[in-house]
Design a protein around this nucleic acid. Structure first.
Length: 567
RNA sequence: GGACCUGUAGCCUAGCCUGGACAAGGCGACAGCCUUCUAAGCUGUAAAUCCGGGGUUCGAAUCCCCGCAGGUCCA
């Protein structure tokens, strides 16, 4: 699509005597494609030429040279609208996709590395839907990075030694048979108990102290609960197709010298001092942090490390491994905290990871919270989605094997979950409603998957024909219907969407793009029969839908959603 | 009290970074479309003070300032 835009810019630049780069910046897209494919607003020229934009537009129309990629130029009021050559557009888009296949739209970066840390749920219970936003967002980002060529590794940080974990360990004390599914109840129960009798909290702190002192029995107790939890969380995420290359444990920084090394570097800045509670803190004045006193607490009074110091050691280690892009996905509640880490790291000459923040998923009662039990479990969400998908599939496919049914139901149900969460910009709160979350119509994964399944169905029916199809030697000028041109245009736009999503680290751009593509395909589907008597037309249309199929598959793949062949 | 994010038809959202034509989708509502490639679909209609108020600009949903409301944080 860019080559057409450049051709337009070149034509205008020559006619108006302007630098082509400047023209590129000004080129817009008309509100309706019937008005043209590109538009040049003439307002900006009005002042220097001392003519009305309307005059300029019609003057430029006379001067501008068309032909080749540009079919015609037409002045419309203060705009000069351009129509591109439809056949050339369709050919360029379709052949590019069929040639590059699953690499179409990739930046094809070479030798670049990336590291992304996401999910990093406290090992305290079965994850709720709010936590899933981190995982789904992070997973989509990892897929996006890999797609563009980054050698990417995914990390999961396990906060296995926090106060909340100590409380859970306390709650699980003496429980012989402990299962993953019990942890949530235990966690809620112990939190409620501590609420009632605060002296219990001291017991939790005592456990943490014992951990610090490397008490073997305590370590084992923590490990039992944490492992149970991590294993359970990992299983759930794997069910959603989300995988991790490394699980990094916070406790590793408790019993190593790494925090001391960081501390030494920080001390060398001369900004570390002991506060009135005896803790060592670093002065972060000058970083415009929204805090009463801009400091970052590093240790307790007894000199043992606090979460922040361990996190700094962890971040330093990640930076060393990343050797390229280094990304972390964090809830918006960590915004200020992360700015502190960033500031502290910068004092010792290090760069913090790029951070992607997301807002919480809310319930009518407020934000989801494991502690209070105000939540929708991801497991329940997944089960409900798969059950609904199964019913829908069965209603349409009576003779389907039970194993295929299960696979399909998960692809569709889990796809719906992922899409529902990823389609919204991360900085927006999401109000969770079962009705919307389990909608399989409109802006949803099943809608997109359905378009893909339809294409598969047509290709199957077209039989031997589609095997013989090549992208060359076809008569693309037969693709003249509005729906066909619209489809070709959006296919041509995929590389832009994929690049923008990567640049801004915003996968919802891919979600919206893919929806739009499916949308255009459905309009085409109803208006233009693929299997027809006219062989030339049929071949051209088959090439078109094969390209659509590929881009749908790539787009869904970037979101971690399977493109199913039947529904 | 301070800082950051968000506010777009009854509901959910895209567009905001990088200003441009009557603000775009989806759900819901209403009217149509299955003997023809899967109706999880398509076509059409009704529905919007783009939170409010100032400002910048030829032009503001978009940029700036002041408010209001929701979310988050101030260890």
């Amino acid at each position: 699509m860019d080559e057409f835009k450049r051709a337009v810019a070149e034509a205008i630049a020559k006619a108006a005597g302007m630098p082509q780069e400047e023209v590129m910046q000004l080129i817009a897209v008309p509100p309706d494609s019937s008005m043209g494919d590109y538009a040049f607003p003439c307002f900006a020229l009005s002042k220097q030429m001392r003519k009305s934009p309307v005059e300029i537009a019609s003057e430029l129309q006379r001067k501008v040279r068309t032909g080749g990629l540009i079919e015609k130029a037409a002045a419309q009021g203060p705009y000069l609208n351009f129509f591109v050559n439809k056949a050339m557009l369709a050919e360029a888009a379709i052949t590019a996709v069929l040639r590059e296949k699953d690499g179409y739209g990739s930046l094809k970066l070479k030798g670049k590395k990336a590291l992304i840390e996401h999910t990093s749920i406290n090992p305290n219970a079965s994850p709720h839907v709010g936590r899933a936003r981190n995982a789904i967002l992070g997973d989509a980002l990892a897929r996006l990075l890999r797609f563009h060529g980054y050698k990417t590794e995914v990390h999961y940080y396990v906060n296995d030694i926090g106060k909340q974990i100590a409380m859970l360990v306390l709650g699980c004390e003496g429980k012989r048979k402990l299962e993953f599914k019990d942890l949530l109840d235990e966690y809620i129960r112990i939190n409620a108990e501590i609420e009632k009798s605060p002296e219990l909290e001291q017991k939790a702190f005592a456990l943490l102290k014992k951990l610090d002192d490397r008490d073997k029995k305590t370590i084992a107790e923590f490990r039992r609960v944490v492992q149970l939890c991590v294993t359970g969380q990992k299983r759930i995420m794997e069910g959603l197709g989300i995988k991790y290359d490394f699980f990094d444990y916070e406790s590793a920084y408790l019993w190593s010298r790494k925090t001391e090394e960081v501390m030494q570097k920080l001390e060398a800045t001369g900004k570390v001092f002991v506060d009135d509670e005896g803790r060592r803190v670093i002065n972060l004045e000058g970083f415009s942090l929204a805090m009463k006193s801009p400091v970052f607490v590093l240790t307790r009074a007894d000199g043992t490390s606090l979460y922040g110091l361990r996190d700094m050691a962890y971040n330093i280690e990640k930076t060393g491994r990343a050797k390229g892009r280094n990304i972390v996905v964090l809830g918006e509640d960590h915004k200020l905290y992360f700015r502190q880490v960033e500031a502290a790291l910068s004092l010792i000459g290090l760069k913090a990871p790029e951070v992607v923040h997301y807002a919480f998923i809310l319930l009518p009662e407020g934000k989801m919270s494991t502690r209070s039990g105000n939540l929708v479990l991801l497991e329940d969400f997944m089960r409900q989605a798969a059950e609904k998908a199964e019913k829908e599939v069965l209603a349409r496919n009576k003779s389907i094997s039970s194993s295929e049914l299960k696979k399909l139901a998960e692809a569709i149900g889990y796809g719906a979950i992922k899409y529902h969460i990823i389609k919204v910009s991360p900085e927006k709160n999401v109000m969770f409603s079962w009705e919307q979350a389990l909608s399989f119509e409109g802006e949803s994964a099943p809608y997109i998957q359905y378009a893909h399944a339809r294409i598969c169905s047509i290709l199957k029916k077209a039989g031997s024909n589609n095997k013989k199809i090549k992208s060359s030697g076809l008569n693309y000028s037969l693709l003249q219907a509005r729906e066909e041109t619209e489809l070709a245009k959006i296919i041509a736009d995929f590389p832009n969407a994929a690049a923008k999503a990567e640049e801004q680290l915003r996968p919802h751009i891919i979600a919206n793009y893919t929806q739009m593509l499916a949308d255009r395909f459905n309009s085409f589907y109803h208006a233009c029969p693929v299997i027809t008597e006219d062989k030339g037309l049929m071949d051209a249309r088959i090439a078109l839908i094969k390209a659509v199929k590929q881009v749908l598959e790539t787009g869904l793949g970037l979101l971690g959603i399977e493109a199913v062949e039947r529904m």
